[in-house]
Design a binder for these strands. Structure first.
Lengths: 210, 210
DNA sequence: CCTATTGTAAACTAACCAGTTTAGTTTCGG
DNA sequence: CCGAAACTAAACTGGTTAGTTTACAATAGG
């Protein structure tokens, strides 16, 4: 009786989640049929319904797992040996790369589409995505190292502005199918311009000595 | 035989569009049923189907009309007697007010949800929304009056950054149901901070002589 | 006032979908 | 190798949906 058998509700639990994730991301909540999910997961419908009481609970479980996965960004903020400017660039690059990735796009699309129907989902997504990142960035902006270079009154607002400068028109273009595969150069350009604007506002000015 | 009778395919065309708009905005494409639309529009299903071949075409027609309506922003850029800084604030206020409005939120939500299924819709929304505004703002940034105050290399990028600074966390909070009715003060604060950051980067610096 | 157009209500088709049930098969610990 | 637990395929229930059809009523122009 090891821990694994305790936790798992059945042999094919992960398979079901994987199939459901694929189909929900592709079709949205209304568009996805349970038969399709079962087929995609390589599992019978009866098995699926032995794990989840209904389609909604399956949907929420999938998206909660995705939100959790999305939150694993700790590593990024622990790396050392970079200047503040370099670290801002690294953060921005990470953000924009996520924003235009298939995973990031699908997550955003599905959550936006269903947030009204499932308020709990909206909260979960916001908390593990924008909020979590905002706090991480704000934390960095408050660090001693950052404070030596930056002059920030409201770190949460500054963090938000930095993130927004990364979102950019490009994210919308990808979202609405205008642009498919943005090049690394495009991304770097946006990162560079975002950090440039951010620093123009928040870089510490030499104190005017009376 | 006046023009009106030519254009209209029937007496109740506008009614159908109005009902369809309401239901699609409320329920999304998959979630909306044609019976519900007909009921909401106060029209029989047969009438509805005499105007549109199927649900998809009705959906696209509604959203195209909405996109057209959204494009009517000419007025804003013609008003005179404002300083460049004031005009930036007016533009930002207009943007953010739209972003958090019920109409703006529903439009965005539905278009994001269905852009993958209806590529044409994604293009239409992008063209009449973000692209149209971006061009308008860039045009203003290139005007002689603005150029006297601002020093901008890439006006489209600058316009994009200004718009993004308006979107902010607040738009996401409303989108995901975290915040319901942002106060006028909150909006003004964001506008102020957006313009501040924008000007920090783009305000013309006194030329260093010699 | 008459007639063609435009509309209506309601029934109907054929498909689909969430969720259940059944009868039988696979898997795996002991 | 046995027996319980997990799984399967497939049929079934009850409900919904997009789209059509039919028989009838309102409307509006000439």
């Amino acid at each position: 009786m090891n821990a694994e058998t305790q936790i798992k509700k059945g042999r094919k639990y992960d398979q079901v989640i994987a199939g459901a994730r694929a189909v929900f991301m592709r079709e949205g909540f209304e568009g996805a049929s349970v038969d399709e999910i079962a087929r995609d997961a390589g599992v019978s419908k009866a098995t699926l319904y032995s794990y989840f009481p209904d389609k909604q609970h399956l949907f929420l479980e999938v998206l909660k797992q995705e939100c959790d996965a999305q939150s694993e960004v700790e590593v990024l903020f622990e790396q050392t040996g970079l200047s503040v400017e370099e670290k801002l660039c690294v953060i921005c690059k990470k953000l924009i790369t996520f924003f235009v990735s298939d995973f990031g796009q699908d997550m955003f699309r599905v959550c936006v589409a269903e947030a009204k129907r499932f308020p709990e989902l909206g909260e979960t997504f916001y908390a593990s995505g924008p909020k979590h990142w905002g706090e991480k960035i704000a934390g960095f902006l408050c660090s001693d190292k950052a404070k030596a270079v930056l002059d920030i009154e409201d770190p949460f607002l500054a963090a938000d502005q930095l993130a927004q400068l990364c979102r950019t028109d490009l994210m919308l273009k990808v979202m609405f199918g205008i642009e498919k595969d943005p090049s690394e150069e495009e991304l770097d350009r946006i990162v560079d311009e975002a950090v440039r604007t951010f620093l123009a506002r928040y870089r510490r000015k030499p104190a005017a000595v009376g």
